[in-house]
Amino acid sequence: PDDLEKRARELLKRGKNPDEIREYLRNAGYDQSQAEEALKRAL
Rank of each mutant, 00 (worst) to 15 (best):
A42N: 02
Y30D: 01
A42F: 08
D31R: 04
A28P: 01
A28Q: 12
L12P: 00
R22F: 13
A42W: 06
R14E: 15
K16F: 15
Q34N: 06
L12K: 03
D2M: 12
N17A: 11
L12Y: 05
Y24A: 11
A38S: 04
A28C: 12
L25M: 10
E37Y: 05
E36A: 05
L25S: 00
E10V: 05
K40F: 11
G29I: 01
N27V: 10
E20L: 04
R7F: 15
R14M: 15
D3C: 09
P1H: 12
A38Q: 02
E10G: 05
L12D: 00
K40I: 12
L43N: 04
P1T: 13
E23P: 00
P1V: 14
K16T: 06
R26A: 10
L4S: 05
D31Y: 03
R22H: 05
N17I: 05
A28E: 13
G29C: 03
E37C: 09
A35H: 02
E37V: 08
D3S: 10
I21S: 00
R26I: 15
K13N: 11
R26D: 02
E36Y: 04
N27W: 09
L43V: 07
G15D: 02
Q32W: 14
R7E: 11
R41S: 07
A38C: 10
Y24H: 08
R26T: 10
K6D: 10
G15Y: 03
D3V: 09
I21E: 00
A28L: 15
E5Y: 15
A28M: 15
K16G: 05
K16W: 15
D19F: 06
A35K: 01
E23V: 06
L43S: 05
R9L: 12
D3N: 10
E10H: 06
D3Y: 13
A42G: 02
L11V: 00
R7N: 06
K13F: 07
L25C: 03
L4H: 05
N17S: 15
L4V: 10
R22M: 15
R14F: 09
E37P: 03
K16L: 15
A8E: 00
D2E: 12
D3M: 11
L39Q: 01
Y30I: 08
G29N: 03
S33P: 08
Q32P: 14
E20P: 00
R7G: 04
K13Y: 07
E23W: 06
Y30Q: 02
I21A: 03
D2C: 14
Y30N: 02
D3T: 10
A35R: 03
E36G: 03
D31F: 04
G15M: 03
N27H: 10
L4N: 02
D31A: 09
D19E: 11
G15Q: 02
E36T: 05
E36C: 08
L11R: 01
L11D: 02
Q34E: 13
R22L: 15
L39P: 00
L39K: 00
K13S: 11
G15F: 04
R14V: 10
K40M: 14
L11Y: 05
Y24I: 15
E5P: 05
N17P: 06
R22W: 08
S33Y: 14
K40L: 13
L12V: 07
I21T: 02
N27M: 14
E20A: 06
K6P: 03
L25Y: 04
K13W: 07
K16M: 15
L43I: 09
E37L: 08
E5S: 09
K40S: 11
D19A: 09
K6I: 11
E36F: 04
D31Q: 07
N27R: 13
I21D: 00
R14G: 11
Q32Y: 12
A28D: 05
G29D: 02
A35F: 10
K40R: 14
E20F: 10
L39F: 03
Y24W: 12
E5M: 15
K40Q: 14
K6W: 13
A38I: 12
A38Y: 04
I21F: 04
E37K: 07
A35Y: 12
R9S: 07
N27K: 12
E23N: 07
D3Q: 10
A42D: 01
K40W: 13
K13Q: 12
Q32M: 15
E23A: 09
E20N: 03
A8L: 15
I21W: 01
R9W: 07
D19N: 10
R22N: 03
Y24E: 10
K6G: 10
P18Y: 09
R9A: 09
G29Q: 02
A38T: 06
Q34I: 11
E20I: 03
L43C: 09
P18I: 12
